[in-house]
Design a protein around this nucleic acid. Sequence first.
DNA 1: GTCTATATCATGATAGAC
DNA 2: GTCTATCATGATATAGAC
Lengths: 227, 227
Amino acid sequence: MKLRAIKPVRETQTRILDAAEELFLQHGFEGASMRMLTTRAGVNLAAINYHFGSKDALIEAVLRRRLDPMNSNRVAALDRIEAQAAGRPLEPEAIIGAFVGTSLRMIEDSRGGGRNFIRLLGRTYTDPDKQIRALIGQLYAPAMERYKAAFTRALPGLPRDELVWRMHFMFGTLSYTLAATDTVQLIAGFKAEDRYDARLLEARLTAFLAAGLLAPLQNGAAVRKAA
Amino acid sequence: MKLRAIKPVRETQTRILDAAEELFLQHGFEGASMRMLTTRAGVNLAAINYHFGSKDALIEAVLRRRLDPMNSNRVAALDRIEAQAAGRPLEPEAIIGAFVGTSLRMIEDSRGGGRNFIRLLGRTYTDPDKQIRALIGQLYAPAMERYKAAFTRALPGLPRDELVWRMHFMFGTLSYTLAATDTVQLIAGFKAEDRYDARLLEARLTAFLAAGLLAPLQNGAAVRKAA
DNA sequence: GTCTATATCATGATAGAC
DNA sequence: GTCTATCATGATATAGAC
């Protein structure tokens, strides 16, 4: 009987992706060199080009690995509450909760290293590199359209232009909050243990965003119909 | 009578700062090389080190050139509305308007090239480089403290923890909106001419942020006293 | 103050042995 | 699949002529 070599703990590709996720967050896509990545991953310098083809392709792989399932989760969360509602119109708070909750639950998932990715993601929307912003916009578009449709159904009194801006504001608040979990310290002087209580943060964020989404229109009209 | 050489249109230092402002925005602090900067500025490669000492020092100079006056303007706007109120408590909307308006007015100031800077600033808060984030936090801290005090006086019913988070959310919405004025296109499909109407954007942002700041607390209590 | 020329080092990528 | 060795390029920074 022939003995096979013991498999490494994680596949080389996974080791590279994990290292890249962490180092891209700390140094940016440009600032993290391939030497840094391969050293951290414990693999050879040539491994990135062998497994992914180029550094750019690696960046895309890092983003897709978590973003594709995350978008599926987001859409699934929306499907779930729509099924529960059984045809009745959704509460805007429930839609926001589905969107925000998907991100924040990744922060808690310490095993999957999702926290690094969530913070990385928050930065990526404002990355200097235009191609990276285009990629992320493209990866997001389908889920965003689904949520836009859901908001439109839930809030027929909100004009389309206004909805798009308010979704933009909501998205901005979320992604900044995810990206800047250490800057807040500098600005406000937080206790460290307060920062990653995802449940409390989710409640606070949802309340803030729902109020903003439902703000009175400039002509004074209410957005939500009276109950 | 001795003739002096004609002065260049702008000083070398200003030319470098202007070029850096634009190229840092387009390529990030790390991605914009000194060669790119000096070529764009039409000066010699050695000029940056001669005038600023290093690339890092140039980055700080670029930020300080506009951030210091901007913070002064922010505080002055607050002083002004406090003087107008003559001792009466301020409306939270007025405080938000003072803060937001200072940023958005820089976008309109096409002469000073403030728009580039505002977008650059929006990115800087989530820059990968820790020193840059620390610098920006430090430059912002005094003005932020003034605004925190103003909000505290205007909203005695809002607990301090909650106020700090909501200020964080407001700041995030603003900075993301400033940084991502092109990403919004990808997400929502905007008409281009709509994007830089600063007056309209200011009204929309202020309404959104004020509603979020005044969102009911988790125990259902209202934040603002009834009139 | 401004330039040329250069020192020194790190980068992404690849060729070829094993 | 993984390694070593190396290439071509571009980075920041500086020395020294003018």
